[in-house]
């Protein structure tokens, strides 16, 4: 765990302690379970976003994708009577296709990620609303899917299964990002795509793969969100979720220029965001201030991190001077 991640963890614990002292209900099992369920749902989404951000890209359409794929999933199993495992696979495949199309437009046709995914944001939201004729997708009376519901909205030993899913995915993605050849390519491309290309890396394919990973994880979280809310009005479902995901990554130490950030960081970023949401509820802060609190904390977090970096660089210079080590350039 890097120092940055450790700092974030300490912040999470401090905020948690303060909230628990002011309102002990924070520590009630039901509250912790609810919060960790949300951490699971948003965490899966944020990991996907992190893979795109590390390449220096951005994926703005995830909120709309959550709405569209969630609507389709419920429609497939509740209205069209499709077996849920088949629907599940289909939705994941659709997520992959969306990622592939985005990646293709960005790497082959050289469109900017911001533009491509902004169009996606508008298109998928519109399609979702059209698909339900601006209605609500939901389950009929008495319809239930015990296995699916257990896997997505159920709990094991009191721990939400969505949270367990996040942990499993995190471990796998940690290995992919921090230990695999592919992960190294992602960092190299994020740091300097030209130099990576000149080292013989097929950068287009790697970037495309990052968008596919994002699409797949977004699709997975879309299913979780659908099963959590159980009814979807496509006009509002998943709105701003892309911003939650980006915020989690930024809080977790990712640079929007690419090439920087860790998996532990984005998870901790998600945890802090959900803790803040919970704090707003528990401390009786008007829920209308929700976004303002989140924005304020992210701003402070980024500011402290940046100033800390400046401070450390200065201290290192001073130490080098005092020790008389060759810290400064000789020329």
């Amino acid at each position: 765990m890097s120092k940055k991640d450790l700092g974030l963890l300490i912040l999470i614990l401090v905020v948690g302690t303060v909230v628990a002292i002011i309102n002990p209900r924070f520590l009630l099992p039901i509250n912790l379970a609810n919060t960790s369920n949300l951490i699971g749902l948003f965490g899966i989404l944020s990991i996907g976003q992190a893979f795109v951000i590390i390449t220096g890209g951005i994926e703005l359409s995830v909120g709309s994708v959550v709405a569209l794929l969630g609507t389709l999933f419920i429609d497939f199993i509740a209205v069209r009577g499709m077996d849920w495992p088949l629907a599940f696979v289909l939705i994941i495949a659709l997520g992959a296709v969306i990622g592939l199309v985005h990646g293709w437009l960005i790497t082959r046709l050289k469109l900017q990620p911001f533009v491509v995914t902004l169009c996606g944001l508008l298109i998928y939201r519109g399609v979702a609303r059209f698909y339900t004729a601006d209605g609500t997708a939901g389950f009929g009376f008495g319809q239930n899917f015990p296995d699916l519901e257990f896997l997505t909205a159920g709990r094991s030993y009191g721990v939400p299964n969505s949270f367990i899913a996040l942990i499993v995915i995190s471990i796998v993605m940690w290995v992919v990002l921090h230990r695999s050849v592919f992960g190294r390519y992602l960092y190299a491309i994020g740091k300097n795509e030209e130099a990576a290309k000149y080292s013989g890396i097929r950068t287009g394919r790697v970037v495309m793969a990052a968008y596919v990973i994002c699409g797949v994880l977004t699709a997975l979280s879309a299913i979780y969100f659908a099963m959590y809310t159980r009814s979807i009005s496509p006009a509002s479902h998943g709105q701003f979720y892309e911003l939650y995901a980006i915020a989690a990554a930024v809080l977790g130490g990712f640079s929007l220029r690419g090439g920087e950030g860790s998996l532990v960081g984005v998870i901790l970023g998600t945890v802090l965001l959900q803790e803040l949401q919970n704090l707003v509820n528990l401390l009786g802060i008007p829920s209308s201030l929700n976004f303002a609190v989140m924005g304020g904390v992210i701003l402070i977090g980024v500011l402290v991190d940046q100033q800390w970096g400046v401070f450390r660089a200065r201290r290192q210079m001073l130490e080098a001077t005092r020790k008389g080590v060759a810290g400064a350039p000789a020329e």
């Binding site: 960092y187 190299a188 740091k191 300097n192 130099a195 290309k197 000149y198 090439g259």
Partner: peptide
């Protein structure tokens, strides 16, 4: 510096 090496690696 731009294409030969990755300065941060």
């Amino acid at each position: 510096k731009l294409t030969g090496i990755l300065l941060d690696l």
